[in-house]
């Protein structure tokens, strides 16, 4: 019996080694000033993160505007130079609803111009770009044309965020002409203040999972590590509370706990820069570590191991401190 022991161990070690050849880990950076605090730096160091997806600016075509405009371009500091950066441009879908097809070349040039300015400000030379747009059947042609022309102009590797509904209804919304996609495995539900979690809800994810396999693009996957609050007034969500610290409601006599994930304003008051009317409910939504692991199980089951890398949304210590420090490692190693 003893002589079989060694080969068996060898196989186990090899398998384990294969399993632990982790995929790369990355983060989205989604604030208007690029500057990393010590906690954020330490998390990046610990996980040997070398690449970041950095939101550069939004593009919007406002109802009262004459042309698409950049909104809140990022102001990076020199710490950005330590990372391989993929600029991310969020384009509001209404931009393509209003844009004339003939002006796409102008938009392409403007976007490339501003991306370049921001790169130059820190002397970095990204080779990739990512476009984040919740495009629809009505805007797909213009968005896809924009991507094609952007590639023709810059010759860069282009990726796009892909939402679950775009995976399920790919015959209607089409598949963008990009080099790879990033599957946004969050924000799948309606933000309506009901008892579902609008960031991640398994029952909703189940409606989409089976379609992932047949999506004809190489894909990375983005997982949510953010939380937010919803202010609910007369049954309707009236405000999104970003990055709000939920524990501050605990010892405030203006609020009572209405449910495990909800507080209610006893009196109208200001709190954390927000105003709450009497009887407003504040619902917390976040994705606990157990759900992150569950998501990777779903992805393992439904993607044919096609996932290239894992990107967490978003890099901000107020998000990261909500988790044990090893959660990223655990989630990553759980992904096949």
């Amino acid at each position: 019996m003893k002589k079989y022991w060694w080969p068996l161990l060898l196989i186990m070690v090899l398998t384990a080694a294969c399993r632990h050849q982790n995929k790369p880990l990355s983060f989205y950076y989604w604030k208007t000033q690029f500057t990393l605090n010590d906690y954020e730096k330490s998390v990046l160091n610990e996980h040997a993160v070398t690449s970041l997806y950095v939101r550069y600016f939004d593009v919007d075509f406002k109802p009262d505007g004459k042309e698409p405009e950049p909104v809140s371009p990022i102001k990076p500091d020199s710490s950005i130079r330590a990372y391989r950066v993929t600029p991310v441009i969020f384009i509001r879908n209404r931009t393509f609803e209003r844009l004339e097809a003939t002006t796409i070349p102008m938009l392409v040039k403007n976007v490339a111009f501003l991306v370049n300015l921001i790169n130059q400000s820190q002397g970095i030379r990204p080779q990739q770009i990512q476009f984040d747009c919740d495009w629809t059947e009505r805007t797909r042609d213009k968005f896809f044309e924009f991507i094609k022309q952007y590639r023709a102009l810059t010759n860069q590797t282009i990726s796009a965020t892909i939402r679950l509904h775009q995976v399920k209804y790919k015959e209607i919304t089409g598949v963008p002409p990009v080099d790879y996609g990033v599957l946004m495995y969050y924000n799948m539900g309606a933000i309506n203040g009901d008892n579902n979690n609008s960031i991640y809800e398994k029952s909703i994810a189940d409606k989409y999972n089976t379609y992932i396999k047949s999506y004809p693009l190489a894909m990375d996957v983005a997982l949510p590590v953010f939380s937010w609050g919803l202010t609910i007034r007369n049954g309707k969500v009236v405000e999104l509370l970003n990055k709000i610290n939920f524990s501050q409601f605990e010892n405030d006599s203006n609020f009572i706990k209405a449910a495990s994930d909800r507080y209610q304003a006893k009196h109208a008051c200001f709190k954390g820069g927000y105003y709450f009317k009497e009887n407003d409910q504040i619902k917390q939504e976040h994705v606990p570590a157990s759900d992150l692991l569950d998501i990777t199980n779903q992805i393992n089951k439904n993607t044919n191991h096609k996932i290239g890398k894992l990107i967490f949304y978003d890099l901000d210590s107020t998000n990261l401190v909500q988790y044990e420090r090893d959660v990223f490692e655990k989630v990553l190693s759980n992904l096949n």
Partner: peptide
């Protein structure tokens, strides 16, 4: 004014 008009999140389903 410049800092507040950013796409807070890449929200797929708007409120």
């Amino acid at each position: 004014y410049l800092a507040t008009l950013i796409s807070t999140f890449a929200v797929g389903t708007g409120i």
